[in-house]
Design a protein around this nucleic acid. Structure first.
Lengths: 143, 143
DNA sequence: TGTTATGTCAACCATTGCGCTAGACAATGG
DNA sequence: CCATTGTCTAGCGCAATGGTTGACATAACA
C-alpha cells in the first residue's frame, strides 16, 4: 500500500500540474482543493521542493509550481521519490535495493525473482504515464 | 510493500509446495529451512489453515501440507488472503474495496483510475503464476 | 495408561512507523 | 513594519507490526 503521505503527494502534484503555467499556487489552495491537512502539506511540499519536483517562492504572493513541465514527471518518479521504491519487497527494488530481513540467499530466491517481475510490470505502467497525460477512467467500470 | 508476515507466508507455502505429496511437514522444518521464527510461524500457518490453503494434523508425526495442488494456488490468492488486497490504495482494490481517507469523490478520482490500472497489471502477473510454476530467474540479471 | 511430539489459541508486549501538529524562523511585497 | 507566505526541526499519540508466552488439545507409540 502507498502511505497516506504518498497519496497526498500524488494529488498535490496533480493539482500543480493542472495549474501549470498559471502562476504560483499557495499551499492553502492545494490543501483545500485536495482535502489535505495544511500543516502536513508543508512537510510534503518541502520534500518535493528539495527533490527538485517543485519550486517555491516565499513571502506574500508566494506559492508553489512544478519545476518541470508535467510531461517530464512520471508517476513512477513521484512514487520512487516519495516512497523510495516501486517494489513490493526491498530486495526487489531496482533503484533502492536492500536486503530483506530474514531472507535466504538473494541470488536464488524465487520470491525475489517473482517480485522483480511484478515491480517491472508496475514500472511499465507508472513510468509511461506522466502528470501531463489524461487518465483513462474506463478502468473504473468493472470495479 | 508486503509485510514481513506476508513474505513469510509466501515462503512457507512455497516450501510446502516443494514437499507436496511427500507427507506432512512439521512446522519446525519449515521454520528452519525458511528462516522464520517458529512461534510466529504457528500464527501464520494457523491462519492459512483457517483460510483453507493448508491442512494440518496435530500430535506426533503431525504437520502441514497444502490443501490443494500447488497449481491451484496462485500468488495472487496468497497475497489477497494474507494482506487483503493487491492494490496500492484501498479504493483501488477489486475484492476488498474501501474508501480512502481524505480523498475526494471516487467516481472521478484520477489517482484511483491510475491505481486500478496498476492493480490490474499486478493481478495479471500474480494470478497467472501458481505455486506449481517454475519461476524465471532471468529477471534478476539486470538488477 | 502415560509420555512425548506435535498443532491451536488468546493474550500480551515492545518497537516502530505513520500521520500530523507546534512553534520558531525566513523572506517577500506593499 | 506588518501581513502573508514558505522552511525547518522537534515532537506527540496512536495503531500496526513482529514476535513471544504459556496454557491447552490431540495424536502416536511404548
Amino acid at each position: 500500500m502507498l502511505s497516506q503521505k504518498t497519496r497526498y503527494t500524488i494529488r498535490a502534484l496533480m493539482h500543480l500540474a493542472d495549474k501549470y503555467q498559471q502562476g504560483l499556487v499557495p499551499l492553502t489552495d492545494i490543501a483545500e482543493a485536495q482535502n489535505i491537512p495544511a500543516k502536513f502539506l508543508t512537510v510534503i511540499l518541502s520534500e518535493m521542493s528539495r527533490a527538485g519536483l517543485v519550486v517555491s517562492q516565499r513571502g506574500r504572493d508566494g506559492g508553489y509550481e512544478l519545476a518541470l513541465p508535467p510531461v517530464d514527471i512520471s508517476y513512477g518518479d513521484i512514487i520512487r521519490i516519495s516512497r523510495g521504491s516501486l517494489a513490493l519487497v526491498p530486495c526487489a527494488s531496482r533503484f533502492a535495493h536492500e536486503k530483506c530481513k530474514n531472507c535466504l540467499e538473494e541470488s536464488n530466491c524465487r520470491m525475489r525473482a517473482l517480485m522483480l517481475k511484478v515491480r517491472d510490470e508496475t514500472a511499465a505502467v507508472l513510468d509511461r504515464i506522466s502528470l501531463a497525460d489524461p487518465i483513462d477512467m474506463g478502468v473504473m467500470a468493472e470495479g
